[in-house]
């Protein structure tokens, strides 16, 4: 059972520069069942942006945002609205946000914090991309998770062991921070590396908040138990 929740409004607005236009992509998969995706997230986010001076150029309800190929195809059809937007907000789990970031050459921001997966790793297989840390950082790292792509989960750039794009831990393993740097450079947001981040809140993923547990699927499972 995947659990995610919408980020606090102040944090979402904090990512934006004045007047930036946004496109909203909401996942209709797992997150929809806990109210952090689906039509509800689109409505919630629309209200937040329009009340705060950010025009919404369009939105898309994607069946499973973590299916990178499918979400890429669906976004092609949205090209007119997408090209009008400065940034994308994605209401999906950490894998979904990263899948969208990989198919769009714009800043892609998470609208959610992923708290737990209950073992489900998304439809973009290959590697573990999200550790459900409950404090999604993808807005600062170009949509590439620093906790899973960096062997040490560092938050402010590469360690001394990063050399020619390779991680010190293993030959052939790409350095996550080199990837993040290249991506931020590509979307013109290297300025994000000039800010200090407060220490990560490690408890955020340890306990699923009680309010998030009251979903139909969760209750069904409990009944079956």
């Amino acid at each position: 059972m995947l659990v995610a929740e919408l980020k606090p409004t102040e944090e979402i607005l904090g990512y934006l520069r004045p007047g930036e236009r946004v496109f909203i992509l909401s996942c209709n998969g797992c997150v929809a069942s806990v109210g952090a995706g689906g039509e509800k997230a689109i409505a919630d986010l629309r209200a937040v942006f329009s009340q705060n001076g950010h025009a919404v150029t369009g939105s898309l309800l994607a069946p499973f945002a973590c299916n990178k190929a499918l979400v890429g195809l669906r976004l092609l059809r949205e090209e007119p609205a997408l090209s009008q937007a400065h940034v994308l907000f994605v209401a999906a789990c950490g894998v979904g946000v990263q899948a969208v970031a990989q198919v769009v050459d714009k800043a892609v921001y998470p609208a959610t914090n992923t708290v737990t997966y209950g073992a489900f790793q998304g439809l973009w297989p290959g590697e573990e991309r999200c550790q459900r840390c409950g404090q999604c950082l993808l807005a600062y790292t170009g949509g590439i998770c620093p906790l899973t792509t960096c062997a040490k989960g560092l938050l402010h750039g590469p360690c001394g062991g990063s050399h020619e794009g390779e991680c010190e831990v293993e030959k052939g393993r790409p350095c996550g921070w080199q990837k993040i740097y290249d991506r931020l450079s590509k979307i013109g947001r290297l300025d994000l590396l000039h800010q200090c981040r407060t220490p990560h809140d490690r408890k955020a993923h340890l306990e699923v908040p009680g309010t998030r547990r009251r979903s139909t699927l969760w209750d069904l499972e409990r009944l079956e138990d």
Partner: peptide, 14 residues
């Protein structure tokens, strides 16, 4: 003398 140097410089500036 890291290659590429730029990502290391960003961290050094912080």
């Amino acid at each position: 003398t890291a290659k590429p140097l730029e990502p290391h410089l960003a961290k050094m500036r912080l």
